[in-house]
Structure formats: structure tokens, C-alpha cells
Design a protein around this nucleic acid. Structure first.
Lengths: 122, 122
DNA sequence: GGCTATTGACTACAGACGTAATCGTCGTTT
DNA sequence: AAACGACGATTACGTCTGTAGTCAATAGCC
């Protein structure tokens, strides 16, 4: 049911996941400089995220403080799943195979992942 | 430089990656039934993909046969990289860690991935 | 030789997105 | 009290996307 979050909106979410609640202005200050957004742009995005019920706002005097309603972890899970479904037929192994082949995994990467998996096997 | 491929466009690409060259009509026939697109829709999408130079067409009598210009593998690499950058700070290990934690990996999955990694270590 | 079906090109149109300016309100400053 | 400034709400606007309809050319049929 959770509506799709656009790219620009995601940038705002990252700010709120990092720290919240924040006022619109505080969010604007924390948005990565590459974006170079006006304060108004940030407010528009906050409004759209509100409309999508993915954040909430609580009054604080004459302004609002915004706070995420979805956990970053859940969002990340959803997005990775979408990607894996679209590109790898929903299977994880082909993803790892692909990445292993195309990105050069350092020995350390491999060691880390192996350790991880070992842990999983209780 | 390669332009972004939208969701609907990606569906068409999958058809062409599966088999090509194909005429517009053949593509339309092969698009997954859930989409239920009109032939015109498919043609529009082919046109947009052409404009983005991600496919090419060669004349064949009064019609065209379309064929991908980008390899699926390259596309997949690009998309996975984007996702990993956005969600996992560009590092692969956190991706695997996240997936391992949130998706239940079967013992078989784990075994497969371990085998994969073992191979990588020459 | 006119009619019809196929096919690509062009046009359409609503909704999402990126980016912002403007408006209205209310508290603050002088 | 009048002007100013901060803030949310509303409006704007070009582009992209999803989904198609319409038009023009051509090729085959009768």
C-alpha cells in the first residue's frame, strides 16, 4: 500500500532517517549540497511525502516538525526486492553472481560475506 | 550517457533481450499479458527507446525490425550499481547482510553463494 | 483502379516529478 | 500601528511516463 517514493523525495527521507523530528528549514539545511534546492522545493517535497503518508508532522508553535513513518529498513527491503524481482527473477543467488562477476570483489569483500553467511548457518 | 529506461520501456527491452530482431507486432505479441497493452502503446515505447538510442531498427520491407543496442548485462550492472549506491552507500557487503537478514535465505541459497565465492577466490 | 488492412509517424492527455514563485497569516520589530 | 519576516498552503510549469487515438502512405485484394 505504501506509495512509491520518487528520487527527490528519497533524498528528503534520508535526511529524516538520519535525524528527526526536524522542521522544514532544518531539513533544507541538511539536504546534500549537490541538490542545491530552494527552501520552497524542500517544503513541496515534504508536502508530497505527507500526502503519501510516509512521514507525519506534529505542530510545534507556528511550524511543524517532520518525522518518518516508515522505517528505513523496510523501505530498503522493498526497494531491493523490487530490483531483484525485475532484474534477477526474484532470486538472490543470480544477483550475487552478477555482482561478483561484474564488480571486482576484493578478497576482503569475499571474506566478509563468507563470514556473514557462516553466521547465518547458526 | 545512456538515458534512463522507464518501467514500461524496460518491459519492452526484456522482450527484445529475449529475442531479436522483432517487428513491432511481434514485440506486442510477446509482452507479458498482465500489461495488456494496445499495439499502439508498444509502438510508442519502441519509438521512445529509439530516441534514447537504446535500441535500433533496420528496415525490412515496409516495416522495421527492432534490436537492442545495450546488452542486458550492462543494463543490469548499471541498475544494481545505482541501487547499491543509493541504499547501501555503494558497498556490497551491507547489501548481502541486509538481504540475508530480511529475506530468509535457505540453506541451499547459502550453499550456492558460498560455492560462488569460493570459485572467485581463484 | 478504388477499397481495405498494415504500419510507422504524429498527436493527445492525464498524472507524476523536479523545481520553484506567490499568497495569506501571524508574530516581531521599530 | 505599520512594516517586516517566517512559515505553511496554493499555484505554476516544463518534462517524463503510461496509455492510447488519429493520420498518411503503401500494399494487396476484388
Amino acid at each position: 500500500m505504501t506509495e512509491r517514493i520518487s528520487d527527490a523525495e528519497h533524498t528528503v527521507m534520508e535526511v529524516l532517517w538520519e535525524e528527526s523530528p526536524l522542521t522544514a528549514q532544518e531539513v533544507a539545511e541538511r539536504v546534500p549540497a549537490e541538490r542545491a534546492w530552494s527552501a520552497n522545493t524542500v517544503k513541496t517535497l515534504l508536502g508530497r511525502l505527507l500526502a503519501k503518508s510516509v512521514i507525519a508532522h506534529e505542530e510545534d508553535g507556528r511550524r511543524y516538525r517532520y518525522r518518518p513513518l516508515v522505517a528505513r529498513n523496510d523501505y530498503v527491503t522493498g526497494e531491493s526486492r523490487r530490483m531483484i524481482d525485475r532484474l534477477f527473477g526474484g532470486k538472490l543467488t543470480p544477483l550475487v553472481a552478477h555482482l561478483a562477476e561484474r564488480e571486482q570483489l576484493t578478497d576482503q569483500d569475499i571474506a566478509e560475506i563468507e563470514a556473514l553467511l557462516k553466521d547465518l548457518k547458526q
